[in-house]
């Protein structure tokens, strides 16, 4: 991993892009990194485009601005591709990870000539099948971890299991589904 990795999340209000960015910060924190996880607040309403950010570094980062030249972009809602300039400033040696049932080849023409890696994962389908509901968070988190290599996959899976046990202490029945969603996503993410 580079000394500093910067990630931008695009989602819609209510989909949990902010939560996912905080979970990623947690996962990196647990491997000894310095982390920042923060949303960009606007007039919050369900369905409106929202942005969240992560900085993950080996030294404390003192910068408190938004991220304009991310190494990675995660798009939690495919429909945002036409509404938001999701690849703005995205580094060519980085990657974009999109929640979509389409292949990277099908998506790439929609990305305004972006030349870096294009990755897709059908987080909605995985979530429906494993959790019975559309919570794309967990699969998207797993996909960006797999694509970016910010955290070792094995350490990540172990860490998430512990954190699910803590988070869902009162509803243990959802732990297994979340773990299956996580693992499936790491296997099924298509890198193009």
């Amino acid at each position: 991993m580079k000394d500093m990795v910067e990630i931008r999340w695009h989602g819609r209000g209510g989909q949990g892009a902010k939560t996912a960015s905080l979970l990623l910060a947690d996962a990196a924190f647990n491997t000894g990194k310095y982390v920042q996880g923060f949303p960009e607040y606007g007039p919050e309403r369900m369905g409106a485009p929202i942005t969240a950010y992560n900085r993950i570094s080996s030294e404390r980062c003192t910068v408190h601005s938004n991220i304009y030249y991310p190494d990675y972009v995660v798009v939690v809602d495919e429909t945002l591709i036409s509404a938001v300039d999701v690849t703005a400033g995205l580094k060519a040696d980085g990657a974009i990870v999109i929640n979509s049932g389409k292949s990277p080849e099908e998506i790439r023409p929609l990305l305004k000539g972006y030349e870096g890696k294009v990755c897709t994962i059908d987080a909605g389908k995985i979530s429906e099948e494993e959790l019975g509901k559309n919570f794309p968070n967990t699969p998207m988190l797993a996909a960006i971890v797999k694509v970016s290599g910010i955290v070792e996959p094995e350490a990540f899976v172990k860490d998430m299991e512990a954190s699910f046990h803590h988070k869902f202490a009162s509803k243990p029945h959802v732990i297994d589904g979340n773990m299956r969603a996580l693992k499936r996503s790491m296997e099924e993410v298509k890198i193009g």
């Binding site: 905080l22 924190f29 310095y34 920042q36 996880g37 923060f38 408190h64």
Partner: peptide, 12 residues
């Protein structure tokens, strides 16, 4: 502290 910039941001 700075609202949102630190108040809502996770840091070490």
């Amino acid at each position: 502290q700075d609202g949102f910039i630190t108040s809502h941001a996770i840091e070490n």
